[in-house]
């Protein structure tokens, strides 16, 4: 993976994208305005509605040990009954080449709207989890995760 990239080419790539020095694997397309791209993707997802605060909690380290594997979890406060449950949680990332990281799809049989995985973060960025409830409302939580350029680990 990234260890195949020589220091010199990493530096060259760094001149074009902030993320390049951190995560060369995802840097090739870091140049476009990913924040605008993410905002557009979120707008499309909610149909223009502004998600409300509360109910949803995004777990993300404040500082990632390494951007290639960052533990990420979401949980939404919901009774999870057929009458009222969380349909989906979509996780958006603001500085990765693609705006969506993962979408979790829940049902009342999930018992709890809770899920976690490991994600890649190309640079220090905002991660936004948006919950789509069964009544058509949206809730969101945003966390910033610092992706550092390490000594030997980075």
């Amino acid at each position: 993976m990234s260890q195949n990239l020589s220091r010199r080419s990493a530096l060259k790539a760094g001149a074009f994208g902030v993320g390049a020095a951190v995560l060369p694997t995802l840097s090739a397309f870091a140049a476009p305005d990913t924040v605008a791209q993410t905002n557009a993707a979120m707008k499309k997802y909610t149909g223009g509605k502004v998600p409300m605060k509360g109910k949803i909690k995004l777990d993300l380290p404040q500082i990632a040990e390494n951007g290639n594997t960052v533990p990420m979890g979401v949980s939404v406060d919901s009774p999870m009954t057929p009458a009222s449950y969380v349909k989906e949680v979509r996780v958006f990332v603001s500085k990765n080449p693609l705006p969506i990281a993962v979408t979790f799809l829940f049902t009342p049989e999930s018992g709890a709207a809770k899920a976690s995985t490991h994600i890649r973060l190309a640079a220090t960025q905002d991660v936004i989890a948006v919950a789509k409830m069964s009544d058509g409302t949206f809730y969101s939580d945003t966390k910033n995760c610092k992706v550092t350029i390490g000594g030997c680990g980075g």
């Binding site: 290639n68 990281a101 979790f104 018992g111 809770k114 899920a115 490991h118 890649r120």
Partner: peptide, 22 residues
């Protein structure tokens, strides 16, 4: 089906997924 996930390239290698079931 009670749970599913749509994964994107932003998910790390060797995907780990944790979720609940009633």
């Amino acid at each position: 089906q009670f749970f599913a996930a749509d994964l994107q390239p932003s998910v790390s290698a060797n995907p780990f997924i944790e979720f609940d079931a009633k």
